[in-house]
Amino acid sequence: MSFQVMLQQLSSGMLNTMGIFFLTLLFSLPLGLLIAFGRMSKNKIISGFISVIISILRGTPLMLQLMVWYFFPFYLFGWSISGWRFPAVIVGFSINYAAYFAEIYRSGIEAIPKGQYEAGQILGYSKVQSFFKIILPQVIKIILPSITNEVITLVKDTSLAFSITYIEMFTLAKQIAASETSMMPFVISAVFYYIFNAIVAFVMGRLEKKMSYYS
């Protein structure tokens, strides 16, 4: 198999990997904020429940969580799981990353001085306005470095989708390497992950710079 063909075959895996990456961010970033609200709820039952969920999501391997998401409809309800593979990957990744993002949001929200809320209240902002106009922009600036770390981890974590044999970059590279007895697919995928991450780091760096207009 020529290098060209190998690259061509791998490229569908690359697309799938990027699909996992972007869809996970799309769902987990807002979901994480919701979970953070639950975690900070004044209602002890809600906040206790959420904190248990967060600790389970952060305390068990993502690979295992993916398997659970993939197989549970079958084992619990006897449903067919054909066609569920990709959704299961996205659900598993999104919920897992949302748990990490939730704790990051929470630390950021708790770092905002009480006076900011009080100033908003005195000026007549509604709670929602206060949060989205005054608090959240400051939170984002504070948490951006931690978010960057998670996003870079996510690029590498996408390869865990192989555990439920979802055809992403890494799954494909393994298959081709085995059939062609070649290291090349691994080299190509390493280069791909590396470049992908370099781009992510660059973009996040630009974002951080953009947020540094005030101190």
Partner: peptide, 15 residues
């Protein structure tokens, strides 16, 4: 709407 408050430590919005 009738009142305003000036805080000891200003509480301006830094962003």
């Amino acid at each position: 709407k009738n009142f305003g408050l000036v805080f000891q430590n200003f509480n301006l919005f830094p962003h």
